[in-house]
Design a protein around this nucleic acid. Structure first.
Lengths: 155, 155
DNA sequence: GTCAGTGCAAACTTTTTGCAACTAC
DNA sequence: GTAGTTGCAAAAAGTTTGCACTGAC
């Protein structure tokens, strides 16, 4: 069993990402709606990966802020553009992950149970970032390693 | 503009992958239906990535072998299990790629035009394969690099 | 007051499932 | 003959779109 990052974002991170988002919205002529900030706050108050449905449920049930799925999709696109969120394409649905102030990490996925685990490896990170890509302007990358995890391998 | 792998598989590869598939089907008590071999052949007669719909169209229009989408989905699962096919999760739909006798490679995706390009890098490959993953039995991996390609960057 | 943003429902896309007909064995 | 497969159509699941209403500016 692998641990996911347990550092729930502190108040300062919340403050900073709100500032970044506000600046982004201003620069792009978008409105600063309460829905958008509620979504940003919910995302930065949790750890690990989530999909749209999980975020929707969390907002309705836990945060008690009712937004439509359309608004979530809309806001997620803005957050990705604002560099505050990463989209992964693990399974059938897109998985998202906050980006600001996060350690670079990679993912292991168990092909039996589907569990997604994170791991860090500085050397790997360095080599990938230094790779020659020709006329290609790198913005980010995603390394996913597939295999069988401890639990599933014990069968 | 990047070149994709242009080596259309030769007759020998076709023969070998059919043998591998036959063995797999036998070992797992699956039937050797013409649909399954037609799908395998079509996949190994083309290069690059494809999704279910492209494969379906190709079979209907080019190969003139009519199979249902259900059968394609079914067969693709078998081919993945038989280690003859890789599934990628690039966009909204799953992308597939033949696996036997292929060079290990990685993918660059342009975040503007969505183009998927391949590149090889032996060092990268070595570092990834030698990464310590604890109690995790590596089977394969997928490195996707996002950024802006030459054409899109010239705007 | 205006128009971007929201919520809802409908549409769309990709994948899965149920079932009758078929066929590899 | 029989059980695994196929093809079709319906259902699911995830995402996008159209449109009337709302609220940020």
């Amino acid at each position: 069993m692998e641990k996911t990052n347990k550092n729930v974002m502190d108040d300062n991170t919340q403050k900073v990402v709100k500032q970044i988002f506000t600046e982004y919205l201003n620069q792009h002529g978008h409105r600063k709606t309460p829905e958008r900030y509620a979504i940003l706050e919910t995302i930065y108050n949790q750890d690990g990966h989530f999909d749209i449905d999980e975020l929707y449920s969390k907002m309705v049930e836990t945060v008690h802020f009712r937004v439509s799925r359309s608004t979530i999709y809309n806001t997620i696109d803005l957050l990705i553009d604002a560099n505050l969120l990463i989209r992964h394409q693990f399974g059938n649905s897109s998985q998202y992950e906050k980006k600001y102030n996060m350690h670079t990490h990679h993912h292991k996925i168990c092909t039996k149970c589907g569990k997604v685990m994170e791991f860090e490896n500085k050397e790997l990170q360095k080599v990938i970032e230094n790779t020659q890509l020709g006329d290609f302007n790198l913005s980010h990358y995603s390394l996913v390693v597939y295999g069988v995890c401890k639990c599933c391998g014990e069968e």
